[in-house]
Design a protein around this nucleic acid. Structure first.
Lengths: 344, 344
DNA sequence: ATGAAAGCGCTAACAG
DNA sequence: CTGTTAGCGCTTTCAT
């Protein structure tokens, strides 16, 4: 900066003022300084600036992985929001429990960011308490945490609507497949189960835990076994609501292998509306991680600016049922041949 | 840090030395300092440290999007490499030309990172020259740039092997679908086309530009049209090599709609081996973005450490043919009925 | 509207 | 092994 000052024939203070866009610089001087800065390829060091301002000019995000549709979409829409505000984005990827412990032990984000966005982690009370000591706004994304700013999708309502859709199609035996993950993502899964149960309750269908299966995502074998359990029940389900599109697709593939036709013999409903849902013509509950990322970014910027009013704000985003080809009316007539009464 | 020093009854220098893990601290003092630091929830400010060391402790990556299998996988494996080395990761997302221009104009990474990884961008000479002025190692990932460190997949060989596979199955009319993107990704696409052409050349098949189509990714309509063009040729292809799995899947869906059977009437080959390739039982050329990310991270760390030897290193990663259900031998017998001679 | 000077929190010699 | 001292590059009073 000293170089620029010299070249422009002014003091470093003036250079600083110019480069920060303060209005207290005469147009003539401003031009000279900008010229000099350009010629010298000068860029202000955030490090040095933040040392005195106390602001780092960066927002940190804590994510379990980047290798997932949800995270990719959310961050892709978060990034431009931050960039527009002149903020940088630093990413902490916490794939397993060891890394997680290390992060919460050291809290490396401390003093190195102006705000932290925590994505999709199912945090313990202890962990949220620890984040409270960070000395910066912490926004919880894709989960709600009481008393802290959160941005999330209304998973309960989504699952409720999905289950209603199946009910409205005539299904009475509706299975739900939830996922269990080593690290994190389980929050939404639980909420969705709640929505499913609410829908059954309002329809007056008694709860049957045999119809609820839990699976690790991406475990083909476990999917097949869970499906086997459902298909060997005394009264097997006529519809399966999978709590994630990826699981729904695994189910579809397994059913196809057994030549159980979808949707005439089994309806399948997913949750997410990833691009692949369309490719498989999968009926699903759509959520928008892009909107989530965008809103989370905006909220973060607000909190950094210190609008204390929003310190406990919860932003809840909607879901939408996308009916495609894997859900269909349940035709009770089919079973009449087996001795059951139609419409029983 | 002064607080910690006072509480531990030592100087700030000693605190600094302790926290950086230097061995020149007596165990007794070290314990006291660590205790004090823990009690005060103290974390060193990277900002202040970097001001004097000249190292920022962060690696920057420049990516066109985060919303893509390739980027997600690459960054997910890059992140732990950096974290192990105590480095942070900052991400610049450049989705369009305006952002791109802004980035190269201002080069915000300057002085705010120790190295820059440039992913998948098809850069102009001017842009690479500009990056040379950054004053930090710049590693090109998923593309090679002469004279600069690069990490990429051998796209030419991958496409060569894929095309050979189709040739070996008896296909002689092999179409290639490349993608055109507004921003970036086209580099690999071009290389893959080269591999395809090499394979044809070595097989003695004359080049036929009618068999090469170009598409924007994700444009269903364009896919259908391109397919229509191929299917209405005087001698239509018997196999289609799509330069990305996503395009291959779009082709498969379009063919299914027309009831053209895969693979008996048309073989389809993809490139990438995304998870969805397995779901569609798509034969494809596998590449590993995870390996790419990992290697790129390692190289970055080496260059930061100043092993000048590697300043022009190129790391080329292999691809593998994954034969699945969408490629099959071309049965010329089928055409005999149309008057063609078998094995003609 | 501009400049001089005083730090921000830390590390890197240099002494001891 | 530890403390003292002098900045790193910037922003921010406070003068002018």
């Amino acid at each position: 900066m000293a170089d620029v000052a010299e070249r422009a024939g002014v003091s470093t203070s003036t250079v600083s003022r110019t480069l920060r866009g303060l209005t207290t610089v005469s147009p003539e001087v401003r031009a000279r300084v900008e010229q000099a800065a350009r010629e010298l390829n000068f860029a202000v060091s955030r490090q040095a600036a933040s040392l005195v301002t106390g602001k780092t000019g960066t927002v940190a995000v804590l994510v379990p992985t980047l290798n997932a549709w949800f995270m990719g979409s959310a961050l892709s829409s978060l990034a431009p929001v931050l960039r527009t505000a002149g903020m940088e984005l630093t990413v902490y990827v916490i794939p397993d429990l060891a890394e997680r412990a290390a992060f919460f032990d050291r809290l490396p984000a401390r003093r190195n960011a102006d705000a932290l966005l925590v994505f999709s982690f199912d945090l313990t009370e202890e962990e949220t308490d620890r984040l409270d000591t960070l000395g910066m706004p912490v926004i919880y994304v894709s989960q709600h945490v009481d008393g802290r700013p959160s941005v999330y999708v209304d998973d309960v309502a989504g699952a409720l609507h999905g289950t209603r859709h199946l009910f409205n199609l005539g299904h009475r035996r509706i299975a739900f497949i939830k996922t269990v993950g080593a690290s994190g993502f389980s929050f939404s899964s639980n909420e969705r189960l709640v929505g499913y149960q609410q829908a059954l309750a309002e329809a007056g269908i008694p709860r049957d835990d045999d119809l609820v299966a839990a699976l690790p995502v991406g475990d083909e074998r476990a999917t097949t076994e869970a499906l086997g359990r459902l298909l060997s029940l005394r009264e097997p389900p006529t519809a399966i609501f999978a709590e994630q599109d990826e699981v729904a697709i695994a189910v579809i593939r397994a059913l196809r292998r057994t030549h159980i036709d979808i949707p005439t013999q089994m309806s399948v409903l997913g949750f997410d509306d990833q691009p692949v849902a369309d490719w498989f013509d999968l009926s699903t509950i759509a959520q928008s991680p892009s909107d989530l990322g965008r809103e989370a970014g905006r909220l973060a910027l607000q909190l950094i600016d210190g609008s204390e009013a929003d310190h406990k704000r919860h932003i809840v985003l909607p879901t939408h049922l996308i009916p495609r080809a894997t859900t269909a009316p349940f035709d009770r007539g089919e079973r009449a041949a087996d001795g059951e009464l139609p419409h029983a």
